[in-house]
């Protein structure tokens, strides 16, 4: 289900109310023109899954945090901040999830420059 970012908070609230209380996964896909955020939820009573997709403009990468509703989102959000450079707003913990890394850019974005050494190996 594709939605707009400004309707995201309402959808999350609605989702949580409808019994989709189990967060399966938050992930993102870099389609270069836009970056798609994917939230997969599950209702453990009726075993239904629901997916929310939000397209983000690469120049305006931020998402509201959903840790108020889903504690499980915490580490996923931290991972996304680090791997995709999506700023998650409204979070308390600022620490990086993985250990510090000296390189530039965000590894899972498509414009991430590979190390020259790896290039030759390819």
């Amino acid at each position: 289900m594709k939605i707009e970012r400004n309707k995201f908070a309402d959808s999350i609230f609605e989702m949580h109310e409808k019994g989709f209380t189990y967060l399966v996964k938050i992930t993102a896909v870099d389609y270069q023109k836009y970056l798609e955020m994917v939230y997969i939820f599950r209702n453990l009573e009726s075993i239904e899954e629901n997916t929310l997709e939000i397209d983000l403009d690469p120049s305006d990468l931020w998402m509201p945090s959903i840790t108020n509703y889903y504690k499980a989102a915490d580490w996923y959000e931290r991972e996304l901040q680090e791997m995709f450079g999506v700023e998650i707003k409204g979070r308390n913990a600022k620490r990086l999830l993985l250990e510090k890394w000296d390189g530039k850019g965000f590894p899972l974005r498509k414009n991430f420059e590979w190390n020259k050494q790896y290039e030759t190996m390819e």
């Binding site: 399966v24 996964k25 992930t27 993102a28 896909v29 870099d30 994917v38 499980a72 915490d74 580490w75 899972l108």
Partner: peptide, 13 residues
């Protein structure tokens, strides 16, 4: 794009 939901990851969280 391949995204893995690792069970250990979320259990450790």
């Amino acid at each position: 794009r391949l995204s893995i939901r690792a069970p250990s990851f979320i259990n450790l969280a």
